[in-house]
């Protein structure tokens, strides 16, 4: 059915909200683009036919195909855009390196975009005299040190003052907030409140 693939593209994308990002749906995307092309060429032919025959009964079908084409195009771009927004989230949460797990779900162009976005952010931050880091202090600071629970075996973690702590699964530590903030965002540590 016309338009079904485009709908499918967005539906499966939206349903996968439990994962950071779903697999790139190249198959549906290709089908949608194909549908656009077919609709376009059929319209083109009908338009030529109209010029010869002035047959107004061609109009409804042309209008329909045009609407289909516009809708498909819109769905396609919405799909691509929404994925980029997810990538952006990943950049802010997990830092500039994408792990293999996520990489598998992406297409080459998305990996490029991700790296490019990372570079844009860095360039922006480097425009300040000391390269002011806007990726830290994501939440209003309440205290200098926070209690954290380690969720996986991370290994040795060195602090700014030279001390190092062994981050083992289920161990609990009292660390400077600024230094372990990124580990919390990556899901390696968990901030214990109360």
């Amino acid at each position: 059915m016309s338009g079904q693939r485009a709908f499918n593209l967005l539906k499966t994308h939206q349903q996968s909200s439990d994962r950071l990002i779903d697999n790139f749906n190249a198959e549906d995307l290709r089908a949608v683009i194909e549908e656009i092309k077919v609709a376009f060429s059929e319209n083109h032919q009908d338009a030529l036919k109209f010029q010869e025959t002035r047959d107004k009964s061609l109009f409804p079908m042309i209008g329909y195909r045009h609407a289909l084409l516009q809708r498909n195009l819109r769905c396609t771009l919405a799909y691509l855009y929404s994925r980029l927004m997810k990538l952006k989230d990943i950049r802010w949460k997990l830092g500039p390196v994408i792990n293999a797990d996520i990489k598998e779900s992406l297409t080459e162009a998305e990996i490029q975009w991700f790296n490019n976005y990372s570079r844009l952010l860095t360039n922006y931050m480097m425009s300040f005299p000391n390269g002011f880091n806007i990726m830290t202090d994501m939440k209003p600071p309440k205290s200098l040190f926070i209690e954290v629970k380690c969720l996986c075996d991370y290994g040795k973690f060195e602090l700014e003052n030279g001390e190092s702590v062994a981050l083992q699964k289920n161990s609990i530590h009292f660390l400077p907030r600024t230094e372990c903030e990124h580990l919390i965002r990556q899901g390696i540590l968990e901030h214990i409140t109360n």
């Binding site: 683009i33 092309k37 691509l80 162009a109 975009w113 490019n116 976005y117 844009l120 952010l121 922006y124």
Partner: peptide, 28 residues
């Protein structure tokens, strides 16, 4: 600011390039 404008322009371009690469270039 200068840096913000640069960021916005580059960001805009990156998205347009992405659209073009994956979809628009294949379309009429």
């Amino acid at each position: 600011s200068e840096a913000e404008l640069k960021f916005a322009e580059d960001y805009h371009e990156s998205i347009e390039t992405h659209f073009h690469q994956l979809a628009l270039q294949h379309l009429p």
